[in-house]
Amino acid sequence: MADVLLAAAGIILVTVALGLVPIVRGASATDNILAVQLFGTGGVAVLLLLGAVSGAEAIVDVALTLALLSAFVSVAFVKSYPAASSDVTRSSAMYECRA
């Protein structure tokens, strides 16, 4: 059983790693964040699988932390790389005029 779970973890790792390949080939900023988002989800899945294999319940806590903060990073991206004239944020425009 443990082998099956580990194999699943390995497959997920390979898949999300392949998802990072477009970044290497120079994709747009948004695509990069999508790859990181996928990496976060894949990381959570792998952590849950590893937790089931090793029986350490605390690994689920790590997955919980990662799940919370992957959303946080994407929000940070939307805030720090706003589309111009966006109504979502005006922070970088403000930064320029105050700098």
Binding site: T30, S70, S74, V88
Partner: peptide
């Protein structure tokens, strides 16, 4: 607890994909 992790990712994933989609649309219509 496992189900909670999944629900949390469902919620945050839904929010984040909306945010990114909006950001992308505004970027492209620029």
């Amino acid at each position: 607890k496992l189900i909670c992790v999944w629900l949390l990712l469902l919620l945050s994933g839904a929010c984040v994909s909306q945010l990114i989609a909006r950001n992308t649309r505004e970027r492209e219509s620029r």
